[in-house]
Simulated scan of single mutants.
Amino acid sequence: MIDQRCFCGANKGKNFRYLNDEEPPKLSSSGVGFILLDYFSLPSFTHALDALVTANLLRPDSYRTYTFTLDGQEVMSDLGIVIRPDQDLSSFPLNELKLLIVCGGLRTPLRADAQLSTLLKKSAEKGVALSGLWNGAWFLGQAGLLKAYRCAIHPEHRPALAETAQHSQVTSESFMVDRDRYTAASPRGALHMVLMWIGQSNGAGLVDGISNILEFDASRDRRLNPTQHIKMAAPLREIVKLMETNLEEPLEIEQMAGWVKMSRRQIERMFRAQLGTTPVRYYLELRVTEARRLLQHSRLTIVQVAVACGFVSPSHFSKCYTAYFGHGPSRETRMEF
């Protein structure tokens, strides 16, 4: 019997969709609607949508997404790409939505629209969280739905929102979450805004998994322990890079210690404080994670994968793999070529 091992937080996100060691919360699928206005920011829309689609990849059927336009017709994005909506918003049951996002853009006209204001007010009355991308917050403010709320909007439109929603606090942040209002001023802000919304209902584990897929580079330097506001220290980043580039022939801890001019004990303390694990355990997790990727996406044999990931024997590789994923490498699903 092989004892089941758990990945540390830093590596768990990379393997989130392959692990069955924790039961996901029993939540019904949440509806998210996007109202696409004329010349809406396509990058902001796709960043927000990508977070939801990736969430469904990791935890299937968590979110249902819908696109709307005010007249049910096609709409032109800011990049000149025409989008056909899924639904007619006027006849859509608003109580099926948990979040309704108004998608604006740099060239989206700031014109009051009675139909949109009415829909937004009805949504708020039904308990739907409201959101605005780029200058989408202006339409929330124009409907009187940002009173006493902090919000974010693209810098080009801050004066207009400050004039329209005089009782709101217009910030210079790239995104802002204030109770049931979610606003973002940029594509990257839209991504982080939706990640925060996802985390509030589905937990940090899912958010980490999404971030590791969509922001694999930036995720390395993000806060590792939000409760203590710890960021990955420069020596730790250097050691992790050494590990990632030396999987086939793993380095000794003492070798890496020499590179960063620290003692083994100092490195071990740093790993425990910032990653919640040991250097040896973290290194093993990187190798097992890479082995899964190679098994799924290459024609390498199990023995070749074991060698490529620094395992001394196929039996040792099989034991470690089974401990983390619950099944041996021979049972891994392999892509068709």
Rank of each mutant, 00 (worst) to 15 (best):
L49I: 06
G276Y: 01
R5K: 09
R222Q: 09
P235G: 07
S117W: 04
M232F: 03
L242R: 13
A129T: 11
Y66R: 11
H47V: 06
V102C: 04
S330K: 12
R265K: 13
T278H: 04
E163I: 08
T171A: 03
V312R: 13
N15Q: 13
P226R: 03
G328L: 01
F175A: 05
R158F: 05
A152D: 04
G13V: 05
S77E: 03
R179K: 15
I213A: 00
L145H: 08
Q304A: 10
K231L: 14
A185Q: 06
A55F: 10
S91A: 10
L130A: 05
P109L: 02
G80L: 01
R265N: 10
G33K: 01
R264S: 10
L286C: 13
R287Q: 09
R269S: 11
F34T: 00
P155H: 07
A112F: 13
N225Y: 13
K319Q: 15
L27V: 15
F216G: 00
P187T: 03
V307I: 15
Q87N: 04
A48V: 07
A152H: 07
L70R: 08
S315N: 10
H229R: 12
D3E: 00
L251S: 14
T118P: 00
C8H: 05
T108K: 01
W259L: 07
E285D: 04
P314Q: 01
L119G: 08
T277V: 04
V303D: 13
A114K: 14
F337E: 12
E238C: 11
A152T: 09
R334L: 02
F34W: 06
H154L: 00
Y283H: 11
P155Q: 04
E244D: 15
L52S: 11
T277Y: 03
V194C: 06
P314I: 01
R292A: 04
G326A: 04
I302M: 06
T322V: 01
E285P: 05
E215T: 00
S313Q: 02
L57K: 15
M270F: 07
R220A: 12
N225C: 12
Q228I: 03
A257F: 09
N135M: 02
T278E: 02
E173V: 06
N225Q: 11
L206D: 03
E248H: 13
I302C: 06
L284W: 00
C103F: 10
W134G: 06
S263F: 06
A185C: 06
L275Y: 07
A184I: 08
G326H: 06
A51T: 15
Q115A: 13
A143I: 10
I83F: 12
A291F: 07
A234L: 14
F325W: 07
T278N: 00
E96G: 00
G9F: 02
H327T: 08
M243L: 09
L145C: 05
G141Y: 03
R188L: 15
N212P: 00
F337K: 12
L70M: 14
K26T: 15
D217V: 12
T67V: 05
Q304P: 03
S29R: 15
A257H: 09
L120I: 10
I210G: 05
R220W: 11
P43I: 03
F139E: 02
L206P: 03
P187G: 09
N15C: 10
G203H: 02
R111V: 09
E238F: 11
L242M: 14
M76S: 08
R64D: 14
L42F: 15
L58T: 12
P329Q: 02
